[in-house]
Design a protein around this nucleic acid. Structure first.
Lengths: 201, 201
DNA sequence: TCATAAAGTGAATGTATATTCATATAATAA
DNA sequence: TTATTATATGAATATACATTCACTTTATGA
């Protein structure tokens, strides 16, 4: 399923390749995959239409490459930030914060990741299943030290992904009446994760 | 932005109109908006290509109509099910369950709703903003009776929508290794909403 | 500097598909 | 019945756009 792209070898080639990726990323952000044409991409990159096919066998192969890139980049960013936190609770908080920061700084990630649901379903499944697996691994070690409650960790991973994704969406699209800061929404999320939603009597 | 569709008046017209909607719904489910052609829809509905344009001025107008339909249907279903629950906690639990049941019974809703992110951004915003507002209204009354914690309710609404949407996604796409029942995932969600994620020492 | 490979070109091609339209049939109301 | 309106047809149209290809230019290393 994954189409093979041709990596450039020379300095010039690498520059062109990079220009194409950056142009596509920006256009996918603004207009989505379907409304972005190969001609748009090559024009924005400042190269001829045919140049596109020097590196990418098809439009979708560029998309797949971009998604894989983003997927690695975001994992790395989160792993980096939580690695020196001690408790699972602090790792969780930092991970949520890192995800939201990444999302706000790279708002196109939603366009690229979510659109894979319609463009390449296998890629979509893969993305979230492996994200979930990584999450579960972390949660399992926290379960061993009794840091977290003994619940279905796979479901918990989807709960946590849902929370961060939807809150991130709100931030990026500025949904609702009042804009929020990352800090304030992280506080709200952590309140729920710390104490639940309902009042104790 | 909302294109005006022409509603049928006669018995025959109504039947055709309905056939077109049902056919489109099924095809959008299977293949998504872009991979579904108007010809596919009319063929599945058993009418000529031109008939489509008797009722719908464009392909997107049919999509908008469908999304509006689903949006109303799901709200009604949830409102119906939670209305006789007393506590906010029970309303929440029942609402989450109703959403997941609806999603599993109508798995195409994700296709239709999420794809609006790429097809008609305004529709997407509208859908989640009004869903959020409705949520906040319910939570506000629970806040007055001190049933829930005093946190940013708008953010909480996105937290809850994120949880249900992502857990629903897991159920529908059968993500992960082990399939789950609606009951079991609702229990896990309620555990987190009742007690938070972390162990109390 | 010459040979070979890599990179780049852009006009031409082919296909897919949303929409139109002139026309036909069926229903309805007067 | 007849006039009018609603519904239905499907071939024709028009356009958008991914991809190809024959060719040129540039880089590299022997």
């Amino acid at each position: 399923m994954l189409e093979k792209i041709k990596l450039p070898t020379t300095r010039n080639g690498k520059a062109t390749f990079h220009l194409l990726l950056r142009a596509a990323e920006l256009l996918f952000l603004e207009n989505g995959y379907h409304k972005t044409t190969v001609a748009d991409i090559t024009q924005k990159a400042g190269v001829a239409a045919g140049t596109f096919y020097v590196y990418f066998p098809s439009k979708i192969s560029l998309y797949q490459h971009l998604l894989t890139d983003i997927s690695h980049s975001i994992r790395k960013e989160i792993a980096e930030k939580i690695k020196d936190k001690d408790s699972r609770r602090d790792k969780e908080k930092e991970g949520i914060k890192a995800f939201l920061e990444y999302a706000v700084k790279n708002p196109h990630m939603y366009n690229i990741i979510w659109e894979s649901f319609y463009i390449d379903r296998a890629l979509f499944r893969d993305y979230y299943e492996s994200f979930s697996r990584r999450y579960v691994r972390g949660l399992e070690s926290a379960l061993k030290t009794a840091e977290i409650a003994d619940v279905d960790l796979e479901v918990v991973s989807y709960i946590l992904m849902g929370v961060t994704n939807f809150v991130g969406l709100k931030l990026i699209l500025d949904l609702g009446d009042t804009p929020k800061t990352i800090e304030s929404v992280v506080d709200t999320i952590m309140h729920v994760l710390d104490h639940g939603l309902f009042s104790k009597k």
